[in-house]
Nucleic acid binder design. Structure first.
Length: 452
RNA sequence: GCCCAGGUAGUGUAGGGGCCUAUCAUGCAGCCCUGUCACGGCUGCGACACGGAUUCGAAUUCCGUCCUGGGCGCCA
């Protein structure tokens, strides 16, 4: 390479007239000891300057590469640029690859050009190289830096893989993907608090669940639908497993019952784990996780038995008809030790749309999917008969009037159907053993955080 | 919402009435260093959340405010 070209490479920036000259960039993982020459663009992860010899560790999303500068031999412009380059600056380095046992990955880059594309200010808001840890709050305030860490990036790569795999599975099984509105008028589905919002002259809310819309699509004859999207809950909870904005994987299927839906849920969970085990080897390694794929079928424990299991190991009184406390959930989880279902819930503690057993209406065809650490999903066969649904809404102390848009489809040919909602964030959290659900979400929304 | 813990350089921390002109690490700046991989060595830079009170004296005790983490509750 002529000195003239070296000079241009060092001085030009990424303007349009420079791009035609941009040599082909190589992802770092593709740089092997056999590579002869390489153009690499990445962030400076760290610098080790030994005096006559300096090592610049470059990082891109595919890995790390050591750039070795022998100061007596390196071009002056390389030395000048390298000296100016702060940690976490984006740089482009061109040079020859030398195979050497002494460098990480068995190869190093001897630079001929070294240019700073975007210089990082100093000090950094957090230490990307993780020599010094950062608290979750600092990390979330600076998520773009936090996510440069391979361990953090791995979580979101895995999450993306899970999304892809579940989409594929559901499409393969003949599902139709739907997108429903997150802005709704119904204030009282009962239960959770909703976020109110100003919708012109009307009152509106952020939707807590696509439940009612999924069911309406059963009336529309779509038979098998799914949606992966945000849900919003205005609860003031302050825990490591709750968010005010979560991602829900929702499905609804016509002519299916709760058993069919538990079977589907098992397939989805196994598919998620399998896809990660098969295609996220390096990410799992970065996280130090050996992923065990859950075995099916998952135990299906009737509610009445579940509270007995809980009562064995905790002090508090659990009466039939009580919801499971955190301690009870944990006690059952420890006893069972694997994913499991709690089935046959008391009708009174499940939503109005859960179908009661014909021969025993105090119990309904609802189920929860539990990971030993926490609830992941709940579902049910739904009521498809209009009058029974109205009865149940009234029994829950709700007003059928505010559900008219939802109830009307039940009068014009509603097929029997069942479905569930699965918490994506908790799925990732439990799969990877994360201690805080915020680790599984890029920009979490909790009781206090609305930015970034 | 209730309860507990906490807020000290950019980051993570030590210190809980005078030993504080505040510890250590990392970072940053300078100098030395040709095989580092948490490189090493020397020098320097940089902080007690805010307001009030108690006290001869407050980072330290008390009150209030703001902020944060966690547990529980809540989560059709």
């Amino acid at each position: 390479m002529s000195p003239d070209i070296i000079e241009r490479k060092i001085t030009y920036s990424l303007t349009t007239d420079a791009i035609p000259d941009l040599p082909m960039r190589i992802p770092i993982q593709d740089v092997t000891p056999e590579t002869e020459r390489a153009v690499v663009i990445g962030w400076i992860n760290e610098v080790r300057d030994l005096g006559g010899l300096a090592f610049y560790i470059l990082r891109d999303r595919t890995g790390f590469l050591q750039v070795t500068i022998v100061k007596k031999k390196a071009p002056e412009l390389v030395l000048a640029a390298a000296k100016e380059a702060s940690r976490e600056s984006v740089v482009r380095v061109t040079g020859t690859i030398k195979a050497t046992e002494k460098a990480p990955g068995g190869r190093e880059l001897i630079p001929e050009t070294f240019e700073i594309i975007s210089r990082a200010e100093s000090p950094l808001p957090l230490d990307v190289s993780e020599k010094v840890p950062s608290e979750i709050d600092t990390r979330l305030d600076n998520r773009y830096l936090d996510a440069r860490r391979p361990r953090v990036a791995a979580i979101f790569q895995i999450r993306s893989t899970v999304t892809h795999a579940i989409n594929n599975l559901l499409f393969d099984e003949g599902f139709t993907n739907i997108t429903t509105s997150k802005i709704v008028a119904t204030a009282t589905e009962g239960g959770t608090e909703l976020f109110p919002l100003a919708y012109f002259e009307k009152e509106a809310f952020l939707n807590q669940s696509p439940q009612l819309y999924k069911q309406m699509m059963m009336a529309a004859g779509f038979e098998k639908v799914f949606e992966i999207g945000p849900i919003f809950r205005a609860e003031e909870h302050n825990t490591t497993r709750h968010l005010n904005e979560a991602t829900s994987i929702d499905v609804e299927v016509s002519f299916a019952d709760h058993h069919d839906m538990m079977d589907l849920l098992e397939r989805v969970i196994v598919c998620a784990y399998t896809s990660v085990a098969e295609s996220c080897g390096s990410e799992l390694e970065a996280l130090g996780i050996e992923l065990a794929i859950p075995e099916t079928p998952f135990p299906r424990i009737p509610y009445a038995e579940a509270i007995d299991i809980a009562a064995l190991s905790i002090d508090e009184d659990i009466g039939y008809g009580d919801d499971l406390s955190t301690a009870a959930e944990r006690a059952i989880g420890e006893e069972v030790g694997v994913h499991y279902f709690i089935t046959d819930w008391p009708t009174e503690i499940k939503p109005y749309y859960a179908m009661p057993y014909e021969d025993k209406p105090t119990v309904c065809k609802a189920f929860d999917l539990m990971h030993p650490r926490m609830e992941l999903s709940s579902g049910a066969q739904r009521i498809h008969e209009h009058d029974l649904l109205v009865t149940q809404i009234i029994a829950k102390g709700l007003s059928p009037d505010s559900f008219s848009f939802y109830l009307q489809p039940f009068r014009y040919g509603m097929p029997p159907h069942a479905g569930w909602g699965l918490g994506m964030d908790r799925l990732i959290m439990t799969m990877l053993g994360l201690q805080n659900i915020r680790e599984a979400v890029l920009f979490p929304r909790d009781r206090h955080r609305v930015t970034p």
